[in-house]
Simulated assay, not measured.
Amino acid sequence: MRIEEKVAFLRKPDSYPDRPAQVEVIKTHMSWVFLTDRLVYKLKKPVRYDYLDFSTLGARYKNCEREVHLNRRLAKHVYLGTVPLTLEADGGLKLGGEGCMVDWLVQMRRLPADRMLDVAIREGTVSAEDVRKVSQVLADFYQFSPSLAISPAEYRRSFETDIRSTLVELSDSRYALPGVQVDRLMAAQRQFLTEQGDLLEQRAREGRIIDAHGDLRPQHICLISAPVIIDCLEFNRQFRTLDPVDELAYLALECERIGAPVIGDQILAHYKKAVRDACPTELIAFYMVFRACLRAKIAVWHTMDHDVEDHQRWLSLARTYLDQAERYVHHG
Rank of each mutant, 00 (worst) to 15 (best):
E234K: 00
Y321A: 07
N63W: 02
D215E: 10
R190P: 05
A187I: 13
P227G: 01
H220P: 11
A318Y: 04
Q196K: 10
A188L: 08
S316Q: 13
H306M: 14
G99F: 07
D265A: 14
K27H: 15
E195V: 10
R257H: 14
A139S: 15
P178L: 08
V300H: 09
A59N: 08
V289Q: 08
D198T: 13
R73L: 07
R327T: 10
Q324E: 02
V262P: 01
I224N: 03
M101K: 11
I3E: 15
L177V: 08
A299G: 11
A325S: 09
E5Q: 14
L70D: 03
Y142S: 05
S55C: 09
E4P: 12
T56Q: 02
D215N: 08
V119N: 01
G214N: 04
G264L: 06
I26L: 14
L111S: 08
R164A: 15
H330P: 06
T194L: 04
V137K: 03
T86D: 01
A139V: 12
E154G: 11
P112D: 09
Q181N: 06
R11D: 01
Q143Y: 09
S316I: 09
S151V: 11
F34Y: 05
D265H: 07
R313I: 11
D114V: 13
F144W: 15
H220D: 10
R276E: 15
A278M: 08
A204C: 09
C222N: 00
T86E: 03
D243W: 03
D310I: 14
D305H: 01
P17G: 10
G197C: 00
K62F: 01
R72K: 07
S151W: 03
R276D: 15
F159M: 06
N63G: 10
A59C: 08
D215R: 00
K12A: 15
G214P: 01
H306Q: 13
S127R: 04
C293A: 13
D246I: 11
V102Q: 08
Y49S: 01
G124F: 05
V228T: 00
D211N: 05
E123D: 04
E247M: 09
V289D: 04
V131I: 15
P178G: 05
D140K: 14
Q136F: 08
I3T: 15
P178Y: 07
G332N: 05
A325E: 00
A153C: 07
S147N: 09
E326R: 15
E195D: 14
D53K: 03
L70T: 03
A252V: 03
K133W: 02
Q189W: 07
D323G: 08
L185H: 03
W32G: 11
R205W: 00
Q196G: 05
D310E: 15
L242E: 04
T241F: 02
V245G: 09
G96K: 01
R110K: 15
E309Y: 12
L35Y: 14
Q22P: 09
Y79G: 02
F34N: 04
E24S: 12
Q238N: 09
S316E: 11
R48G: 10
D50S: 11
E24L: 13
K45D: 07
